[in-house]
Nucleic acid binder design. Structure first.
Lengths: 364, 364
DNA sequence: TTGAAAGCGCTAACAA
DNA sequence: TTGTTAGCGCTTTCAA
């Protein structure tokens, strides 16, 4: 049995004023004699009055909180990516004294009620996510972290410039002699998968090359099927000399599949992960990867959303933030054998070399 | 300009019933003809009606959300520990379809208003944290993740069994010949610091040993002052053969300080960190540490809190969950030279050996 | 079976 | 300068 909380009415009665006067006295609005204001403040403190944020929000229409929705939040909060994203969002909400609500996200059950927040970030919108759909049609401001997959209602997007990062790394390995890239990509349920595929195809077409493709369900765990999938690809397309993979799990599968075919990853066939992860610096060989910068992305999303809920800003449909390349041995071993290849990087992303690895680990 | 959201009144009017009937029709309560119920539901869908969770909560007193407060959330969300804690809490809130609100936590500015949630977890309560104090006196249910420092109002606590883990590791290194332990501990602003100190002192007293002490501000970054602090300790207490440190940062300082004195960490002086971190497996030498299991702790806190807000459970003042030991070279190098020492661990914690390191990295 | 009325705690017009 | 009134959107008695 908890005691009934002290309300504004209690304070007003005790101080002998009306509720509106009490409200204004406490909020500092309205002009009134200093004496009444002090008297009200005093009794408020004495009674231990705490404004009910719920009632306040209901009345004012502002909550001082934004929410974060992520389809797989439950299981994939484990993912380094999402945690970093949350950290970035928290960096900016906290600095602007807002709460950040992590929405429960059962992707199958609808939730119907609209959340008690001023706006929502949808991290990594996935097609068929019932709750994301609800949010998008709720009328509250939405910013997406990463682009929408086809066939979904949309909102302003803050995303990573995958095109540029991918082209940078492709140009780099092209210089090392790569002529037959293969993309093991996430499927079209994520906007990321779509961008990856388009970019590789465009890049190949521009050079008269042909890309081999395989699709893999987004966010599967460590299974041998990754090795099998890559293996099947290698057997079907013997000329492949670059494997673009979507995650560390698939990178591991790729390395295993290559070795099983007496092909040395990083020399005979290069391996690049389209998303960096700490462990990619610890594999044998370490795997070159695109660092998506999830923390910066989370921060950018929160900043964008706050600018619309607080300052009524108008957001462009798509804002891109740069990714960075982490060059590692899975593309560098070849540099010595291929001969004549430049290891200078074109483009505007900042490359980081294996020497930075140690620092990576320490920053973790 | 966003369109005015559809309210229950709109639905009622459109369906030609009163608001109360509409409410009951939608919530499934109240007995009424199937036809009116269906009619109301139908118009609700047609108008795109979404219940306002704020109003609902104001009326019912239940929000379906719990909050998480952490003093350093802004900057130290970076800390692996806190992220894991959040992940654990999210695991259980999400499974029980609750939202998890990460509270903005400026430790100096009061916030006054009580948060829009059914209960709050205070992760790692720190003395003098204004907002934590506000929460503790607000009347809403609070569960603390880790014990309170002295002089703070309290609530039920879910914490880690530091005593047991620390005694296990102390017994272990005692078997390796340690006779003069030193604790570089967090100060008494955290309950953790207090427990650590008491446990080491008790353990030493029981064996007629004496512990050297130094205190360090909680959660400082990588600074050379750590090395200086440990160095000063080593110079002042030349017999020390075990350094207990609170974090990876101080562990690094300890290693540097020892080497600067031509003392080999792990052989001449053992090093143990009271909190594990991924990088402790990558240092030279890798450092034995107590894995606090922050994810499990976060989950346990959320479970406890939900049991009180949902089932009105009565919580014991202190619930302890076990920690695990990660034995690494910083205590093992000595095993070969000390002779006769057992590496079997007494006690109930589960030791993990360096062989597990690789897996550690992969799981990250 | 349904409707009318009250009220959760607060803020903001408008009067006095 | 202060009080009265209305109402944010919803749920829940209590009558009809």
């Amino acid at each position: 049995m908890r005691p009934r909380p002290v309300t504004l009415g209690d304070v007003a009665r005790e101080a002998g004023v009306s509720r509106s006067t009490a409200s204004e006295a406490l909020s500092g609005r309205g002009r009134m004699t200093e004496s009444t204001r002090l008297a009200v403040r005093d009794t408020a403190v004495r009674l231990g009055y705490r404004p009910n944020a719920l009632a306040q929000s209901l009345r004012t229409g502002r909550t001082g909180a934004i929410a974060l929705h992520h389809q797989h939040a439950a299981d994939s909060f484990s993912s380094q990516y999402f945690r970093e994203f949350v950290a970035g969002a928290m960096d900016v909400t906290s600095a602007r004294d807002h709460d950040l609500t992590l929405l429960a996200s059962d992707p199958t059950t609808p939730r119907a009620t609209l959340p008690r927040v001023d706006g929502v970030i949808i991290a990594d919108p996935i097609a068929d996510d019932v709750r994301a759909l609800e949010l998008l049609t709720s009328g509250i401001p939405v910013v997406a972290g990463e682009r929408y997959p086809p066939g979904m209602p949309t909102s302003p997007v803050v995303g990573v410039h995958h095109e540029q990062a991918l082209r940078d790394v492709l140009d780099h390995v092209h210089g090392l002699g790569v002529r037959r890239p293969a993309l093991v990509g996430p499927d079209a349920h994520s906007g990321w998968g779509v961008v990856l595929r388009e970019t590789v195809d465009d890049w190949s077409a521009e050079r008269g090359l042909v890309t081999a493709h395989r699709t893999i369900a987004f966010a599967s765990g460590f299974t041998t099927s990754h090795e099998d999938l890559v293996g099947e690809l290698l057997d079907a397309e013997p000329g492949v000399d670059l494997l673009l993979v979507p995650s560390e799990a698939v990178a591991l599968g790729a390395i295993a599949a290559l070795r099983a075919r007496s092909s040395e990853p990083g020399r005979d066939v290069l391996v690049v992960s389209c998303a960096d992860a700490q462990m990619l610096g610890l594999t044998d060989p370490p795997v070159t990867a695109i660092d998506l910068g999830p923390r910066a992305l989370g921060a950018a999303c929160a900043r964008a959303l706050l600018s619309v809920v607080e300052d009524d800003a108008e957001l462009p449909p798509l804002t891109l933030i740069p990714a960075t390349l982490s060059l590692r041995a899975s593309t560098e071993l070849r540099a010595s054998t291929a001969g004549g290849a430049s290891t200078e990087l074109p483009g505007s992303t900042e490359p980081r070399r294996s020497a930075d690895l140690r620092r990576d680990a320490v920053r973790a």
